[in-house]
Amino acid sequence: MSILKAEKISVEYEGTAVLKDLSFRIEKGEFLAVVGENGSGKSTLIKAILGLVGLSSGSIRLDGGIKSGGIGYLPQQREVQKDFPAAVYEVVLSGCLASRRIVTFYSPDDKRLALRNMELLEIADLRKRSFRDLSGGQQQRVLLARALCSAKAMLILDEPTAGLDPLISSEFYGLLGRLNRENGMTIIMVSHDIEAAKENAGRILHVGTGPCFFGSVREYLRSDTGKRFSNGNAGHSA
Protein backbone atom coordinates (compact mmCIF):
# COMPACT_ATOMS: atom_id res chain seq x y z
CA MET A 1 0.00 0.00 0.00
CA SER A 2 1.38 3.41 -0.93
CA ILE A 3 1.65 5.72 2.01
CA LEU A 4 2.83 8.66 -0.09
CA LYS A 5 2.41 9.35 -3.75
CA ALA A 6 4.15 12.26 -5.48
CA GLU A 7 3.16 12.95 -9.04
CA LYS A 8 5.09 15.27 -11.31
CA ILE A 9 5.91 17.70 -8.55
CA SER A 10 7.81 20.91 -9.27
CA VAL A 11 8.97 23.48 -6.77
CA GLU A 12 10.24 26.93 -7.63
CA TYR A 13 12.25 29.17 -5.38
CA GLU A 14 12.48 32.82 -6.37
CA GLY A 15 11.82 32.02 -9.99
CA THR A 16 14.30 29.13 -10.39
CA ALA A 17 13.10 25.55 -10.53
CA VAL A 18 14.53 23.54 -7.62
CA LEU A 19 12.58 20.37 -8.37
CA LYS A 20 11.08 19.56 -11.73
CA ASP A 21 8.48 16.93 -12.64
CA LEU A 22 9.52 14.50 -9.94
CA SER A 23 7.39 11.40 -9.42
CA PHE A 24 7.80 8.66 -6.84
CA ARG A 25 5.79 6.66 -4.35
CA ILE A 26 6.60 5.32 -0.93
CA GLU A 27 5.19 2.03 0.34
CA LYS A 28 4.19 1.53 3.92
CA GLY A 29 7.10 0.30 6.03
CA GLU A 30 9.82 1.03 3.52
CA PHE A 31 13.14 2.82 4.00
CA LEU A 32 13.82 5.37 1.27
CA ALA A 33 17.08 7.27 0.97
CA VAL A 34 17.03 10.59 -0.86
CA VAL A 35 20.46 11.34 -2.30
CA GLY A 36 21.97 13.99 -4.53
CA GLU A 37 24.59 16.71 -4.61
CA ASN A 38 24.50 19.66 -2.25
CA GLY A 39 21.91 22.16 -3.35
CA SER A 40 20.11 19.59 -5.51
CA GLY A 41 16.79 20.14 -3.75
CA LYS A 42 16.80 17.29 -1.22
CA SER A 43 15.78 19.50 1.69
CA THR A 44 13.26 21.28 -0.50
CA LEU A 45 11.66 17.95 -1.35
CA ILE A 46 11.30 17.17 2.34
CA LYS A 47 9.78 20.55 3.01
CA ALA A 48 7.34 19.94 0.19
CA ILE A 49 6.28 16.61 1.72
CA LEU A 50 5.83 18.31 5.09
CA GLY A 51 3.77 21.03 3.48
CA LEU A 52 6.26 23.78 4.36
CA VAL A 53 6.84 24.90 0.79
CA GLY A 54 4.19 25.08 -1.89
CA LEU A 55 4.30 23.10 -5.12
CA SER A 56 4.27 25.05 -8.35
CA SER A 57 2.73 22.02 -10.05
CA GLY A 58 1.96 18.36 -9.41
CA SER A 59 0.57 16.78 -6.28
CA ILE A 60 1.65 14.93 -3.15
CA ARG A 61 -0.92 12.55 -1.69
CA LEU A 62 -0.52 11.11 1.78
CA ASP A 63 -2.51 7.95 2.46
CA GLY A 64 -2.72 5.47 5.28
CA GLY A 65 -4.34 7.89 7.69
CA ILE A 66 -1.39 10.23 8.16
CA LYS A 67 -1.75 13.91 7.74
CA SER A 68 1.30 16.01 7.12
CA GLY A 69 1.24 17.05 10.78
CA GLY A 70 1.57 13.43 11.90
CA ILE A 71 4.94 12.87 10.29
CA GLY A 72 7.93 12.72 12.62
CA TYR A 73 10.53 15.19 11.41
CA LEU A 74 14.19 15.41 12.32
CA PRO A 75 15.48 18.64 10.77
CA GLN A 76 19.12 19.53 10.33
CA GLN A 77 20.59 20.79 13.57
CA ARG A 78 20.70 24.50 14.05
CA GLU A 79 23.44 26.61 15.52
CA VAL A 80 21.03 27.90 18.18
CA GLN A 81 20.60 24.44 19.70
CA LYS A 82 24.24 23.91 20.55
CA ASP A 83 24.10 25.97 23.74
CA PHE A 84 20.38 25.80 24.37
CA PRO A 85 19.42 25.29 28.02
CA ALA A 86 16.71 22.66 27.79
CA ALA A 87 16.31 19.40 29.64
CA VAL A 88 16.10 16.29 27.46
CA TYR A 89 12.51 15.57 28.55
CA GLU A 90 11.48 19.11 27.62
CA VAL A 91 12.81 18.62 24.11
CA VAL A 92 11.23 15.19 23.65
CA LEU A 93 7.90 16.31 25.06
CA SER A 94 7.75 19.17 22.57
CA GLY A 95 7.24 16.50 19.90
CA CYS A 96 3.73 16.01 21.26
CA LEU A 97 2.87 19.50 20.05
CA ALA A 98 1.92 18.15 16.66
CA SER A 99 -1.16 16.34 17.87
CA ARG A 100 -3.10 19.41 18.90
CA ARG A 101 -3.76 23.05 18.17
CA ILE A 102 -3.08 24.82 21.45
CA VAL A 103 -1.03 23.23 24.18
CA THR A 104 -1.15 24.97 27.50
CA PHE A 105 -0.20 21.83 29.38
CA TYR A 106 0.88 18.43 28.14
CA SER A 107 -1.44 15.58 29.15
CA PRO A 108 -0.33 12.49 31.13
CA ASP A 109 -0.67 10.58 27.85
CA ASP A 110 1.82 12.92 26.20
CA LYS A 111 4.26 12.42 29.06
CA ARG A 112 3.92 8.63 28.86
CA LEU A 113 4.51 8.73 25.12
CA ALA A 114 7.62 10.86 25.59
CA LEU A 115 8.98 8.49 28.23
CA ARG A 116 8.25 5.43 26.10
CA ASN A 117 10.13 6.91 23.17
CA MET A 118 13.08 7.85 25.36
CA GLU A 119 13.18 4.25 26.62
CA LEU A 120 12.98 2.95 23.05
CA LEU A 121 16.04 4.98 22.10
CA GLU A 122 17.86 4.20 25.35
CA ILE A 123 18.06 7.79 26.54
CA ALA A 124 15.63 7.58 29.47
CA ASP A 125 18.50 7.95 31.93
CA LEU A 126 19.49 11.22 30.28
CA ARG A 127 16.07 12.80 30.65
CA LYS A 128 17.07 15.36 33.26
CA ARG A 129 20.37 16.23 31.62
CA SER A 130 20.71 19.41 29.64
CA PHE A 131 20.57 19.13 25.86
CA ARG A 132 23.63 21.37 25.49
CA ASP A 133 25.78 19.03 27.63
CA LEU A 134 25.12 15.94 25.48
CA SER A 135 27.39 14.51 22.80
CA GLY A 136 26.39 14.87 19.15
CA GLY A 137 25.12 11.29 18.96
CA GLN A 138 23.05 11.67 22.13
CA GLN A 139 21.58 14.92 20.82
CA GLN A 140 20.46 13.19 17.63
CA ARG A 141 18.80 10.43 19.66
CA VAL A 142 16.94 13.07 21.65
CA LEU A 143 15.75 14.76 18.46
CA LEU A 144 14.76 11.35 17.07
CA ALA A 145 12.74 10.63 20.22
CA ARG A 146 11.02 13.97 19.74
CA ALA A 147 10.25 13.10 16.13
CA LEU A 148 8.78 9.76 17.25
CA CYS A 149 6.38 11.62 19.55
CA SER A 150 4.74 13.18 16.52
CA ALA A 151 5.20 10.24 14.12
CA LYS A 152 2.20 8.06 13.57
CA ALA A 153 3.71 6.00 10.78
CA MET A 154 6.40 7.97 9.01
CA LEU A 155 9.74 9.55 9.91
CA ILE A 156 11.55 12.09 7.77
CA LEU A 157 15.20 12.73 8.57
CA ASP A 158 17.36 15.44 7.04
CA GLU A 159 21.07 14.53 7.12
CA PRO A 160 20.71 12.88 10.53
CA THR A 161 24.38 11.88 10.83
CA ALA A 162 25.96 15.14 9.67
CA GLY A 163 28.82 15.92 12.02
CA LEU A 164 28.79 12.54 13.79
CA ASP A 165 31.82 10.29 13.77
CA PRO A 166 31.55 6.99 11.83
CA LEU A 167 31.00 4.76 14.85
CA ILE A 168 28.21 6.92 16.27
CA SER A 169 26.71 7.24 12.77
CA SER A 170 26.52 3.49 12.30
CA GLU A 171 24.93 3.12 15.75
CA PHE A 172 22.37 5.68 14.69
CA TYR A 173 21.66 3.84 11.44
CA GLY A 174 21.23 0.66 13.47
CA LEU A 175 18.60 2.42 15.52
CA LEU A 176 16.79 3.59 12.40
CA GLY A 177 16.92 0.09 10.94
CA ARG A 178 15.33 -1.30 14.09
CA LEU A 179 12.55 1.28 14.04
CA ASN A 180 11.96 0.40 10.40
CA ARG A 181 11.92 -3.41 10.81
CA GLU A 182 10.53 -3.90 14.31
CA ASN A 183 8.19 -0.94 14.64
CA GLY A 184 7.12 -0.83 11.01
CA MET A 185 8.07 2.83 10.73
CA THR A 186 8.25 4.20 7.19
CA ILE A 187 11.46 6.18 6.88
CA ILE A 188 12.55 8.84 4.41
CA MET A 189 16.15 9.84 4.95
CA VAL A 190 18.03 12.57 3.16
CA SER A 191 21.72 11.87 3.04
CA HIS A 192 24.77 12.50 0.93
CA ASP A 193 26.34 9.46 2.57
CA ILE A 194 25.84 6.99 -0.28
CA GLU A 195 27.43 4.09 1.62
CA ALA A 196 24.94 4.40 4.45
CA ALA A 197 22.11 4.71 1.94
CA LYS A 198 23.24 1.52 0.21
CA GLU A 199 23.40 -0.42 3.44
CA ASN A 200 20.22 0.74 5.12
CA ALA A 201 17.72 1.82 2.52
CA GLY A 202 15.47 -0.36 0.39
CA ARG A 203 15.04 2.17 -2.36
CA ILE A 204 16.81 5.28 -3.49
CA LEU A 205 15.54 8.54 -4.87
CA HIS A 206 18.24 10.58 -6.57
CA VAL A 207 17.34 14.22 -7.13
CA GLY A 208 19.48 16.77 -8.87
CA THR A 209 20.22 18.74 -11.96
CA GLY A 210 20.90 15.74 -14.15
CA PRO A 211 18.53 12.82 -14.70
CA CYS A 212 16.73 11.77 -11.53
CA PHE A 213 16.48 8.19 -10.38
CA PHE A 214 13.91 6.29 -8.39
CA GLY A 215 14.21 2.57 -7.70
CA SER A 216 15.90 -0.14 -5.67
CA VAL A 217 19.44 0.16 -4.39
CA ARG A 218 20.71 -2.51 -6.78
CA GLU A 219 19.17 -0.82 -9.82
CA TYR A 220 20.57 2.49 -8.64
CA LEU A 221 24.13 1.19 -8.47
CA ARG A 222 23.81 -0.12 -12.01
CA SER A 223 22.32 3.10 -13.39
CA ASP A 224 24.43 5.88 -14.89
CA THR A 225 23.36 8.36 -12.25
CA GLY A 226 24.19 5.91 -9.50
CA LYS A 227 27.59 5.01 -10.92
CA ARG A 228 28.56 8.61 -11.34
CA PHE A 229 27.40 9.60 -7.90
CA SER A 230 28.78 6.69 -5.90
CA ASN A 231 32.20 7.03 -7.53
CA GLY A 232 32.20 10.78 -7.39
CA ASN A 233 31.59 12.88 -4.35
CA ALA A 234 30.19 10.17 -2.12
CA GLY A 235 33.54 8.74 -1.17
CA HIS A 236 34.43 11.83 0.86
CA SER A 237 31.49 11.81 3.16
CA ALA A 238 31.18 8.06 3.71
Binding site: L52, I71, P75, F84, V91, S94, L97, A98
Partner: peptide, 9 residues
Protein backbone atom coordinates in the same frame (compact mmCIF):
# COMPACT_ATOMS: atom_id res chain seq x y z
CA UNK B 1 14.20 25.60 20.23
CA UNK B 2 13.48 24.55 16.68
CA UNK B 3 11.48 26.60 14.20
CA UNK B 4 11.65 23.96 11.47
CA UNK B 5 10.27 21.23 13.67
CA UNK B 6 7.56 23.49 15.07
CA UNK B 7 6.53 24.50 11.57
CA UNK B 8 6.34 20.86 10.48
CA UNK B 9 4.23 20.12 13.55
Amino acid sequence: FDEDFARAA
